[in-house]
């Protein structure tokens, strides 16, 4: 299975899977077949139901190149820096602005692709 298919398989089970290198410990996203840091072919999946992070930037899309999305516009999308290291492109739940502490979770879309969504950390929940 390709790394992106494995990401989707985990997402279908409600899990966010990041790759971790067993040789050097680097954590990476988007998934790939080698460690971006030491190039080892020794990657494992670090699986959780969500990963904490912080919103770096946000946008609201009013235009899409893909007709599948046009009925869903406007869509809120952002960049989230995970505490684990990588920056992820995410859909944003309500009340996610730049600087918001969030948790990022994964699910699959209509095309069975993994998609990540960031939601604000609930006060006192974490």
């Amino acid at each position: 299975m390709t790394p992106i298919a494995e990401l989707a398989a985990h997402a279908k089970a409600g899990e966010l899977a990041l790759q971790r290198c067993t040789a050097c410990g680097a954590v990476q996203y988007p998934p790939r077949e080698l460690c971006l840091s030491c190039l080892a072919d020794a990657l494992e999946w670090r699986v959780s139901d969500h990963e904490p992070g912080k919103v770096l930037a946000t946008t609201t899309l009013h235009h899409s190149h893909d007709p599948q999305f046009r009925s869903r516009l406007p869509l809120r999308v952002g960049l989230v820096r995970l505490d684990a290291g990588p920056t992820t492109v995410c859909f944003l739940a309500e009340d996610c602005g730049t600087g918001t502490r969030v948790v990022v979770s994964a699910e699959t879309d209509d095309a069975d692709r993994a998609v990540l969504t960031a939601a604000p950390v609930q006060a006192g929940a974490r």
Binding site: I4, P30, L61, H65, L75, V77, T88, D109, A111
Partner: peptide, 14 residues
């Protein structure tokens, strides 16, 4: 393709 397009397909504008 795998980690940006599925998020609304805003392309480089996004």
């Amino acid at each position: 393709r795998d980690c940006v397009w599925p998020y609304g397909a805003g392309g480089p504008n996004q």
